[in-house]
Amino acid sequence: MVVKSATKKRLMEMGIAEEYAHKLATDRNMTDIKAMPADEIASVLGVSKDDEIFTGAMNALAELGQRRQKRRSRKITISRKALDDDDMDLAGTKFNVLNHVLVPHQELVPVEEEEEQLAPWGLLTTDEETGESRLAKELLPKVLITDPVVQVIKETTERAHDAASSEDEEHVPLPAGWLADRVLKVVRKSPSAGVSVAYRLIVEGS
């Protein structure tokens, strides 16, 4: 005869004295004990059905059953169809990182406005080879073209460009790599510092 130690411990936690928990747990697990008729439980405990020990054991087992039933009642059954419908509603959606509260507003600076917007930083210089003035954008902090924010801006711009030119037979899509060497404007808002503006150069590699 083997005493199920885990079952005995559980019975003792339920308030049944060790002596009687030992008797009930001999060659039985909790499932076996809960399936026992009242007469058999009284016989195993060695007491009458009027005894407080028997009454306490039965109350403890009954309370355990009620707790399990309440725990089951909290479960929510979701039909397969509901899951499929939910998946269909979400199909094709993609999280836009620019909508996150911790991500500052970012936008592409139009090429024709780059010189004007970067003027305060004194990036206008003379090209040593041609002698012409140029914008030294390479001095700006860099951001990779694979950055999630840059990718969102890329997809949004390309989609808008294609939509605007959908009826134009001579429409030419944006070339591959069109985003490289473009300037990204970053606008951060702070309750203490107000608004700060920074610029970054989009590059294809570090």
Rank of each mutant, 00 (worst) to 15 (best):
E169S: 14
D87M: 06
V186R: 07
E169F: 10
G56P: 01
A136C: 07
R159K: 07
R71N: 08
W178E: 12
R80N: 13
E155I: 06
V143Q: 00
A62T: 15
H22G: 03
R72I: 06
K137G: 10
L11N: 10
I202N: 11
S166W: 02
M12H: 06
L118I: 09
Q117E: 10
F54K: 04
E52F: 01
T77E: 01
E167V: 08
D87R: 12
E52N: 13
L11R: 10
Y20D: 14
T7H: 02
E116G: 00
S73V: 00
L201R: 15
A160S: 09
P104R: 10
E158Q: 09
M36Q: 00
I41A: 04
W178Q: 10
K75F: 07
M1P: 15
A136S: 07
V149F: 01
R67M: 15
I145N: 11
T130H: 03
K94S: 03
E115P: 01
T157S: 02
Q151W: 13
E116V: 05
T156C: 01
H100V: 08
Q69N: 02
M30W: 00
M58N: 01
M30S: 04
G194P: 10
L144T: 03
W121G: 08
L139E: 10
Q69V: 06
I33C: 02
F54C: 04
P148C: 07
E204C: 04
E115Y: 01
P173C: 12
E116R: 12
L144V: 00
